[in-house]
Design a protein around this nucleic acid. Sequence first.
DNA 1: GCTTGCATGTAAGCCGTTACATGATTTT
DNA 2: AAAATCATGTAACGGCTTACATGCAAGC
Lengths: 183, 183
Amino acid sequence: MSSIKYALLSLLAREPLSGYDMKQYMNGRVSFFYKINNNQLYPTLAKLEAEGLVQLESHERESYRPARKVYSITDKGIDFLKAWVMEAEEPRSLDDFMLKQYNSWLVEPEAMIGILREKRKEHEERLKIYRGKIAGFREQQAVYPSRDPLFSSIAVIEMGIRNEESYMEWCDRVIEALSRDEI
Amino acid sequence: MSSIKYALLSLLAREPLSGYDMKQYMNGRVSFFYKINNNQLYPTLAKLEAEGLVQLESHERESYRPARKVYSITDKGIDFLKAWVMEAEEPRSLDDFMLKQYNSWLVEPEAMIGILREKRKEHEERLKIYRGKIAGFREQQAVYPSRDPLFSSIAVIEMGIRNEESYMEWCDRVIEALSRDEI
DNA sequence: GCTTGCATGTAAGCCGTTACATGATTTT
DNA sequence: AAAATCATGTAACGGCTTACATGCAAGC
C-alpha cells in the first residue's frame, strides 16, 4: 500500500534512471515527495522489474564501480501509474496527492479537471468547518491571551484555513490551465 | 522518536482524558495531527505512566463496561512537553511542527517568537528556490501543454509556492499576536 | 436479530529507518 | 591520510496498520 513504488515509477515515466539516480532525486534538498533509503529502493526496484512495470535498459560497469543498472518504464508500467493517478481512492496525505499531480501529464485533461473539481469541493467543506470552529471560539470570547490553550488552538486552525484556501486557489489555477490546455 | 507520545501529552495538558477519549479526538474528522490505533495508544499510555509523565486520575467501572481509566498529565509531563516544543531539532513534517504549535501556550511568548522567526526564514529560503525553478522553466519555454511533463512539474511547484507563502503569512500573524500577547 | 457505541487490550505482519558491507577513485 | 563520491546491496530493529478479542446495552 506504500506509495514508494509510484514515486519510482513517476521518475521513470519521465526518463530512464538508475537506482542511485532516483535516490539523488528523492533525497535532494528541493524536497521530492518521499525520501527513500537503500533498503526500500533496491528491493522495490527488483519487485517492479519482476512485475514487468520497469525493465533493465542497460547494465554497464565503469571500470572499478559496481555495474550501474539503468531502468526504464514499460507500457504496462505507464498504464499502472495512470490507473493509480485516476483512481478515486482518497490519497492519504498532501504529498500523496501531489505525487499524483506530478503525473497529471499522463492523463486526459478532462479526467484531471474532474478530479480537481472534486478536490476543490472537499477543501471548501473543510474550510467551512475551520471557519465555524474559530467563530465558535470568538463567540465565547473575543481574544485569548497567549498563555491560554485556545490561543494555540486558534493559531493552528488559522494555519488550516490558510492551507485550505491556497489549496483551493491552486485547484482553480490548474483547472483553468487544463481548460486552456497549457500552463 | 515517534511523535505520538507528544500528541497524547498535548491533549492531556489541556484536560484529563481516557485513552478512548484521546482516540476520539485524534481520529475525529476535523483532522488532529496524527491518527492513532489501539496498539499504539494503550502501550504508549502505559509507558508514559511508567515514566511518570502522566498519572491515573480515576479508574471507575460503569456497571457492565470495562473500567474507564482517566489520565492526567504530571508536572514532569508538562516540563517534558515544553522542552520538546522549544528544542531546536527540525520537526519532520508540517504536522509535527503544528503539533508543537498546539502547545505554544505552555511556552514563554518571547521564546515562541524566536522559533517562529527562524521558521519564517526557512520558508522564505525555500520560496526563493521554488520561484527560481519556475523561472528556469519559463526561460526555456513560455508555456507548456498539459501533456508535457513540465506542465505537471510547474503545477506541483506552484503548490509549493502557495504553501510557503501561506506559511510565512501565518508566521507573521502569530508573531504579531504574540507581541500583542493576544490572538 | 443485527449493528453501533463504549472501553479496554493483544497478535501478526508489513513498512521504514539506521547501520553495515564492499571497493576504487577523487577531493580535501 | 582521511573523507567524500559512485553504486550496489543486506541485516536488525522499531513503528505503524489491520485484525482480533471481550462483553454488555441501546437503537434500528
